[in-house]
């Protein structure tokens, strides 16, 4: 820095830095002392921090500091502490039956909370955060169940999955009537019209009558003569109008044009959804908590089912 003559500002009597922009000069006022003290304090703090905490990278790793602190270790420790803290309740959950657990308010609250967390982590991807489902993914809030809605049914379904890799997986396959040429395009349309009629929609009479015959020959074996489905085979009840393979918005607003198209598509392809088996990924207690949570969403059925919505299915409803 070269020596320069001190430029004293006439108004304030303070020297300037010599910098000037369009006639505006910068005064060389000192930094506020409180600011300067804090600035030096932060420097001192950083030195203390280097000594205490992991701070500097080295060629082979990093300096660990006196405290040898690690966020990752702390999280692991906290998680295991949390697990240990919750262990007694999970244990209790497995000692009683799922029904008994529902009668114990404290245990029920625990199971619902644990189930809700596990649901968010594992199930919400397909079934939605509110278990509201989507096209092809069942809504778990309503009282429509493909494979049964008792606690045991739900627990079993979570464990083995649907069309999954598990040996006991629940399995059924609807034929691809249209794609495989089992029915002609006209026959598929007629059968769909009958399904519309079953669900209480505005069906074209002539087509529905033709469709009824086709339904009796091709579909009644699984869906039942009355179209109310069969839970032993995961065949859905077609009379509710709550079609799984249709756009939920169309289901809610009863958009029959859209629904009719979805029915035709389903009869044509016969596609069935897959739910993975969770037995290998979740421990039994978590699966039980999940079952209790799903059962408590409002559509859960009592184990002994006196007022079943689908008497035909209830009569033949297997426990597993």
């Amino acid at each position: 820095m070269s020596e320069h003559k001190k430029d004293i500002d006439a108004h304030s009597g303070v020297a300037t830095t010599g910098h000037e922009w369009d006639g505006i000069k910068e005064l060389d006022n000192p930094l506020p002392r409180w600011w300067l003290i804090i600035f030096y304090a932060t420097i001192a703090f950083s030195v203390v921090y280097w000594v205490m905490m992991p701070a500097w990278p080295t060629l082979t790793g990093f300096t660990h500091g006196v405290r040898n602190y690690s966020d990752r270790a702390v999280v692991a420790q906290e998680l295991s502490a949390l697990k240990a803290q919750r262990a007694p309740e999970f244990e209790r959950l497995m000692q009683v039956s799922a029904e008994q657990a529902e009668q114990d308010p404290a245990l029920m609250n625990f199971a619902r909370a644990a189930g809700k967390a596990a649901f968010g982590d594992n199930c919400a991807t397909c079934h939605g955060a509110g278990a509201q489902g989507g096209k092809g993914y069942p809504n778990l809030n309503d009282n429509v169940w493909l494979w049964g809605g008792t606690l045991d049914d739900i627990e079993h379904t979570i464990r083995v999955g649907i069309r999954s890799t598990h040996a006991d997986a629940r399995f059924s396959q609807m034929p691809a009537f249209g794609k495989d040429g089992l029915l002609t395009e006209a026959q598929v349309t007629d059968a769909a019209e009958y399904v519309v009629k079953l669900a209480g929609g505005p069906a074209k009479d002539a087509a529905a009558v033709r469709g009824a015959t086709i339904f009796g020959e091709q579909c009644a074996a699984c869906h039942g003569a009355d179209g109310k489905g069969d839970r032993t085979q995961g065949a859905p009840n077609l009379t509710t109008g709550l079609f799984l393979k249709a756009d939920p918005a169309a289901v809610a607003s009863k958009d029959w044009t859209s629904l009719r198209g979805s029915i035709v598509a389903q009869i044509t392809t016969g596609s069935g959804g897959v739910m993975p088996t969770w037995e290998q990924r979740l421990d039994p207690a978590t699966i039980r908590a999940l079952a209790i949570y799903v059962h408590s969403l409002g559509g859960g059925e009592a184990t002994v089912d006196p007022a079943a919505a689908t008497p035909a299915a209830a009569a033949t409803n297997p426990t597993r």
Binding site: A129, A131, Q132, D142, N237, T240, L242
Partner: peptide, 18 residues
């Protein structure tokens, strides 16, 4: 009021809110 789902249609056509 439960916001997700906002309402649930049941098998018999009745509507449920939580």
């Amino acid at each position: 009021r439960d916001r997700n789902p906002a309402f649930v249609t049941l098998a018999d056509g009745s509507v449920r809110n939580g």
